[in-house]
Design a protein around this nucleic acid. Structure first.
Lengths: 368, 368
DNA sequence: CTGAAAGCGCTAACAC
DNA sequence: GTGTTAGCGCTTTCAG
């Protein structure tokens, strides 16, 4: 109403420059904190920014800097998919979920594991102070994987952080083939020239084995994850190895799929074959929780009759009754490290791929 | 090695145009599926695209279209924050989590509720087929809220989908004040000219009440969520109302905070004051799960001695022992509708704010 | 230390 | 039906 010299749309650098009586270049320098700008002018510019309510346009900036300050956080699925995945835990899970039916069960299932929440937390906490943001993507079908690749090729994000739920995930390979910066959570099944963070699975399994042994368990079994996953093999190897060294050459095993339900089924199989077992190590907390349920239903007390140890230390561990003794994976720190590695790679694209391995720790609660 | 006429960097429209022997404009038309392009030329262009490995640059496109095809998916927190939130459920939750200490507990806690996973699923499933993507943000401090606003003002995303965890969240107001497109999950505490989706809380509570009554419960209590949240008040009102109509003018209540732990504490209080109760309605599944744990520890059988009903039908409901009878909120569909409303608003910015209310349903399992 | 000017890669009028 | 052209808003040499 007063002096409508200020343009209609959202203010641009030009407007601020005009208001401050300087050039666009100078305003740009002030905004980007470039040195060599007269303090007096800096102040004038700041005032003009406040006055105009200026906010730099990301697209314009991105166009010249070739950076978006966004990274893709992708949860990646199986290598082969028989169309929309059939398996799912909760029957009503797909009752709604928009018209895009395919994938609903995958995404629903994935986030049922509190593990992913920790990954998100770690990533966001690292990114945020750096003015960067994660774009959430799911890559459970080959179509979805293509989408991730083209998303990155379009320069929509500077790189990708990928968490695979299955072995033989082709996404990491696709990414490196396309020369796109990426960092993985966990070592890929097929070796690739790509950075990753991981936990020392064998050490974690050893911790679990020793704890079970120390508390006097003698008839011990383990519920593994899908056996084609490298991490699962390592946990199994570490567990068996420690057991063997301590006079237990044979360990009963049952394979699960990291879901609570599969943990229940595995526990039932184990109990049928070995009704007298007194110790169980499950490859994640969800399956350990399922095991506890079944044990209780079969009249076994945990830990008095059967001790149970999980893996991850996700929220499922403390939510379980009894609270689970578990092998803690420092997920948040690992996720943050993934982000750090990726950003480092962005600044020097020619750096070699590296891996960072974290040490797990045993969190003793009540189940063992 | 053969004919290096093709430029070094990533190919641009110009390169494709050259390769196809047409103008940039034509290539652009083909790529954007604009009609009025000779089929023969279309084919030539497609070949050139494949040949060059062209991928359109989003920033450049965004600069002119004024759209990013990204939307902010924000999980928003309290209205007032005494610095980094102090409360947290699991002690080890902040043991790591990068150097950015503040907020770690918030984000960790938030994703412990499987409810959010369902929201993410619904949003992604709606957005994905439309070539759009969600950028995940947390807004638990005033600083973080400012960040969300400036993120949008910079044109980094076309609009926001916000899920508030507390009443009196100032974010929705900030967004509308700034004229930024946004849609909420759940009705805001203070009325605002902003679209939202919600579930008919009273109806849901009525369903729970009637079920409890029908199975013969007579000494009934409820565990509510934070009483300053409108949804919580509505569930309580609906529950009390139905009870009152059926000859139960008084209902014992205990307030929780939507966490499993708070549900346990609430159940303990209830049991102390009313050792003989035979039915409990909890305002979410996590608290219902906590209630079940406490009841079992106190030697009460569920549902024989005490029937328990939850709310949400999150994965926690089926994971609980016994599996929870619960009031299902069609979260995925609601989240998808949020996205739909936002996108609709983007295409016609002047449309009035609307709300869409979904009907809940009762899912009968074993706990009641 | 500051300004002028040249694009970044793309879309959208507007001609032809 | 297709090409020409003018920017979108910003960063960044390069002069001065």
């Amino acid at each position: 109403m007063t002096d409508d010299l200020r343009p209609a749309g959202t203010p641009t650098l030009e407007d601020v420059a005009k208001a401050a009586g300087v050039s666009r270049a100078t305003v740009s320098r002030v905004i980007n904190g470039v040195r060599n700008v007269d303090p007096v002018i800096q102040e004038a510019v700041r005032r003009a920014v406040a006055l105009t309510g200026y906010a730099p346009n990301r697209a314009a900036r991105s166009l010249v800097t070739r950076r978006t300050d966004a990274i893709a956080l992708v949860v990646s699925g199986a290598g082969v998919e028989p169309e929309p995945e059939a398996e799912e835990t909760a029957p009503p899970a797909d009752a709604d979920g928009a018209e895009a039916g395919g994938g609903a069960s995958f995404t629903g299932q994935v986030f049922a594991d509190p593990f992913f929440g920790r990954v998100v937390t770690g990533v966001v906490n690292y990114l945020r102070p750096r003015g960067m943001h994660p774009v959430l993507m799911f890559a459970e079908t080959s179509r979805a994987r293509e989408d991730v690749v083209s998303f990155l090729r379009q320069g929509s994000a500077d790189g990708a952080l990928v968490v695979s739920t299955h072995a033989e995930d082709p996404l990491p390979g696709m990414l490196t083939d396309a020369g796109l910066p990426a960092v993985l959570y966990a070592r890929p099944a097929r070796a690739a020239r790509i950075s990753y963070v991981d936990v020392a699975h064998q050490d974690g399994a050893r911790l679990a084995a020793e704890h079970l042994l120390a508390r006097g368990c003698r008839r011990i079994a383990t519920i593994t994850g899908p056996l084609d996953v490298p991490a699962v093999q390592e946990r199994l190897a570490g567990f068996r190895d420690t057991m063997a060294r301590n006079g237990h050459p044979y360990i009963a095993i049952a394979e699960g799929r990291f879901t609570q339900e599969s943990g229940e089924a595995a526990m039932e199989r184990l109990l049928t074959e070995h009704p007298d077992l007194d110790g169980v190590f499950a490859a994640n907390d969800l399956m350990a929780t399922g095991a506890c349920h079944v044990l209780r239903e079969r009249g076994k007390r945990v830990p008095e009759d059967v001790a149970v140890i999980g893996f991850d230390d996700s929220s499922a561990a403390s939510a379980c009754r009894p609270p689970l003794t578990t092998v803690r994976q420092p997920v948040e720190a690992m996720a943050a490290e993934m982000a750090r590695l990726l950003i480092e790679r962005l600044s020097k694209p020619e750096g070699a791929a590296t891996s960072v391995i974290f040490e797990p720790s045993l969190v003793v609660r009540e189940s063992a």
